[in-house]
Design a binder for these strands. Structure first.
Lengths: 197, 197, 197, 197
DNA sequence: GATGAATGAGTGTTCATTCAT
DNA sequence: CATGAATGAACACTCATTCAT
């Protein structure tokens, strides 16, 4: 009896990476609507058929790309997270981590924003992805109990802690205004003024 | 063969109105990517060819629709604008006008958000559309001179006056949280805390 | 008020006919498996997109073509159907009508056979199409009551009245054998011998 | 890298058998058109590439499968063939052997029918395969000489000896009618009535 | 012999737009 | 002005087959 154990051609991590980057690049350049499978494949330097070796279909490609980016950002923020600091410092750290990550990964961030506003976004369980999100909510709740933070629903608190960021960090939204380190500090002070008691 | 039977002055406007509404409805229901010209025409009850009587092409249809909505919201806000009030009251009026208009025109608002995050948005000269925007900036500048408002770039002030709204007003973004009149008041207080000196 | 009654470009019966014939020709020449929409459209001299003006999709094209042919054959047979003749004469008329129609419409007949043996055939309600079929069954039942025809299930009778035809009429099935008028008469005698008491 | 661990003599035949059965199963379930090489390989539990070790290409796979089945049926019929019996008994034996084999190998039979009506069938030299066929023709010729069977071309005789079978044996063609042992006997009597002098 | 990766060529279908009436 | 017909170009995706290991 013979049993053959062969090595066969294996999945090429470089190709998957190329597809990941091509997807982000194209969506940023020509938008979600025009980013077709064949254009993405061409940009990545592979055949459209090859794309289907790595992803189930177009939806899978886009959703997986989004999730991957979201994870990257989440990890970056959680790295700096220290529960033992005073509440203001924790939130300040998150604030700066986000600005930091966004300015260093602008392409990724812009893809995320486009994705979040496309109908594809309904296919993703957002909460599940955003572990750091839960941690921040917990901190806010603690702040409320300690009479440091306004006693209002966390949706309100979040609206002032997160939404201004997208307006400020994305260069598309603030044409003609260069955001400097000082401005980020100032912005955080404003956010803190909004939510603190 | 053409047969003229009656004169009906408003016929054109009726069709254009139907196309306007069909565009918004479809984009909200099936998203930008899937909203094709023929589907929109069908929804409006006209032939695809007729659409090209009223709009140059698909781009024109979408951009015009967006501009029209933007104008409507701008007009609604300007109606309540009274330069003679104290600064806080002016901004509070704007704040409530926006929430008011959005909750009464949710479909239009959601279309706007989708549009603003699509590549089509680059085709629109935003500033030109938003007259009320300039008026608010002027008020903010006045507030800075009168030492009522923090002396920071208006981009920062705007980020806290406008961006939280989109997070709060759009039901898609705040699942499981019902926004009441009181919350809007609270939210404005928070925005004011953020920007006031 | 004006109401416009326009004449617009109308559906072109010639194009539908061309698609009908192209479908049959291609399926006969290269088979069901290889007959793609674009090949059929090319054969008919229209754009693949035009095909979708006349048919909902490929399935509709094939099924409609099959039904149309079936109807044609059914009409041809019913034209000669005379309930007042002796049973043997009625069946003989049907027998000859079928051979007649098949030899004059070989292409159509071969398409039907291919279709009937493809999985598409499950999509058609056969009985509904074949009015002449019911009429023949009724005649057979009468023959049984009148002790002219063997008292067996009509499936058995039908198997000897219909199935030999497909073997004899289709030149593909009888290579090297030319079927003459006399042979058809002989064949009917054999069929009659099979079913008569 | 290749590692030889055991010797297993039947390995090849196992895979070929799996492909043979997978082909038949899939073609019966989803039809000729949709049965792709990779689906068949998956069903057989091997890689698409492996299929090409055993068969030259898809055509070879299908044609070989058909020939194999045809041989099986032919062998089954020839097993019962006894030239020394009276003509009617010989033909009756063939008739029952066929019904027997078909009802015990319905899957195989249905594949055969689909294949015979596909354009692939032109690639097979039918006569060569059907040794039993020649034997039956010889018997028929003897019957003609002995004035037991009608003196007509064997194509006609065959049409009544074989074609009714496909209509009766295939459950797809006789919905709502259950074929019993008695019916097969009756059917043979009818066939015999058709061809006997 | 055996494999999953890889692909050019194709699939059925829809697109935005123009044509003919 | 208004229309359904018409279409080249594109769409997402699958095909039979070969490649590299």
């Amino acid at each position: 009896m013979i049993v053959y154990l062969y090595t066969m051609r294996t999945r090429d991590e470089e190709k998957k990476e190329a597809l990941f980057k091509a997807t982000i690049k194209l969506v940023n350049e020509i938008g979600f609507v025009s980013s077709s499978v064949s254009k993405i494949a061409k940009e990545a330097g592979v055949s459209p058929a090859t794309l289907y070796v790595y992803y189930e279909n177009k939806e899978d490609l886009l959703v997986s790309t989004y999730k991957e980016i979201k994870m990257m950002m989440s990890r970056a923020i959680l790295d700096d997270f220290d529960d033992n600091l005073p509440i203001r410092d924790i939130l300040r750290n998150v604030w700066f981590s986000m600005f930091d990550w966004i300015s260093n990964n602008l392409e990724y961030y812009q893809f995320m924003e486009q994705f979040a506003n496309s109908p594809y976004s309904t296919l993703v369980d957002h909460q599940a992805l955003e572990q750091y999100f839960v941690k921040v909510i917990n901190v806010l709740e603690r702040g409320k109990r300690e009479k440091i933070i306004k006693d209002v629903d966390w949706h309100l608190l979040g609206a002032f802690m997160y939404h201004p960021i997208s307006g400020l960090a994305n260069p598309n939204h603030r044409k003609g205004f260069e955001l400097k380190e000082d401005d980020i500090e100032t912005a955080f002070t404003m956010a803190w003024d909004a939510i603190k008691l």
